[in-house]
Nucleic acid binder design. Structure first.
Length: 369
DNA sequence: TACTCGTGGGG
DNA sequence: TCCCCAAGAGT
């Protein structure tokens, strides 16, 4: 395994560890999840930080700790509140899995986050990276925590040209970390690699002149740092046309719908909407046709409220949004069966909505003024 | 393995 | 405007 990375034969481990950790000790950012080593806090932060920028996470993390200060608090929290804590953060299965895993920790481990790779890896939402991060940062275990930063940093320092988009490539970097990690300070070592990737060894133009481990870097020696890491991938986004409506009744309540418990935006709430799969009907008529089929009622739709384009990772929504009124009584059994509900303008704030639907509501309120 | 799963910031 | 991305995991 080691012979795949020639640079590991010559690198001065002790010097590398010292240069890296000293830099981190003096230059690291003061982030809320670095206040202490509470495994629960480390865990929550690592889940939030998955594919998400630090600046985005900070306010969410602070509010989360305000709402759920301890693992027990979070374990006992109700689903709606949990989802609300994640509203707008994206990748909502993260919080669903986190909640499930925390309850598991409370039930099976007495509320103490396990400190072995075998046990912690079984927890929902805890993959190889997060397991290593918690073990090394909270418990001082010499486990690799290989994320995108670490692969970028080591691809340069060790001149590794494997495609980091391929899942199996992570193993190469884990082997490198196991070889190089400072057993006396696993927390700083792993965090320093990520901090270095975030602040110095960036994707675009790395700030090599400021790099504390420049003298250890094979890519810098060769002048090829901007060519690394190797990453080949690119998917085209599928376009999805939708028609939606913000519907009210005679009580001034809003009709909302809970999305299915799996797939895109699982368990979040939304305004009634349908994917347009025919161009034969006017959008308003198509909406009412679908609504009639689902709930047995039609709506009186007004003019177009707003057109919303929302870009997801792998698809694009184009939503034509109308306002409207439902003046007839609705079948309660159908409402329950299909997860629809009337809520007041006050109560609606308790429910978690994805960003595109938040934009619809914002447009509605703006127009009402 | 390749695809699914959000969002907002920056070049 | 477009594209890449940012502390990945589940299936």
């Amino acid at each position: 395994m080691k012979e795949e990375i020639p640079a590991l034969k010559t690198i001065d481990r002790k010097q590398f560890q010292h240069d890296l950790i000293s830099w981190f000790a003096s230059e690291h950012r003061d982030l809320p999840w670095r206040e202490n080593k509470d495994p629960y806090r480390v865990w929550v932060s690592e889940i939030m930080l998955q594919q998400t920028r630090v600046d985005t996470v900070i306010p969410y993390f602070n509010r989360f700790m305000d709402w759920f200060p301890t693992l027990d608090d979070f374990a006992e929290a109700d689903e709606e509140r949990v989802l609300k804590a994640w509203e707008g953060l994206g990748y909502y299965s993260r919080v669903r899995n986190l909640h499930s895993a925390v309850k598991e920790v409370k039930a099976s481990y007495g509320g103490v986050v396990p400190d072995t790779p075998e046990e912690i890896a079984k927890l929902k939402g805890v993959g190889p990276y997060t397991a290593g991060a918690i073990l090394s940062i909270a418990y001082g275990k010499p486990e690799p925590a290989v994320d995108g930063n670490v692969m970028r940093v080591f691809s340069r320092i060790l001149l590794i040209r494997e495609d980091i988009a391929k899942p199996k490539t992570r193993k190469t970097f884990e082997a490198a970390v196991r070889d190089l990690i400072d057993h006396d300070n696993t927390s700083f070592f792993n965090q320093a690699l990520m901090e270095l990737g975030a602040l110095i060894c960036t994707p675009g133009k790395p700030a090599c002149l400021l790099c504390p481990v420049q003298e250890h870097c094979e890519a810098f020696k060769e002048g090829v740092q901007s060519e690394l890491p190797i990453k080949i991938q690119k998917k085209k986004t599928r376009k999805v046309p939708l028609v939606a409506a913000i519907l009210t009744n005679h009580n001034g309540e809003f009709l909302i719908h809970k999305r299915p418990s799996d797939g895109l935006l699982a368990n979040l709430w939304e305004f009634p909407n349908f994917e347009i799969h025919t161009g034969l009907l006017a959008k308003r008529d198509f909406f009412n046709q679908e609504l009639e089929e689902l709930l047995g009622v039609t709506s009186e739709l007004g003019e177009l409220l707003v057109k919303i384009e929302h870009v997801f990772s792998h698809l694009v929504w184009n939503v034509d949004t109308f306002t409207g009124v439902i003046s007839t009584e609705m079948d309660e059994d159908l409402m329950i069966k299909h997860q629809f509900k009337w809520v007041s303008e006050i109560d609606i704030e308790q429910y978690a909505f994805p960003v595109p639907h938040q934009k619809m509501m914002a447009a509605y309120k703006e127009k009402k003024k």
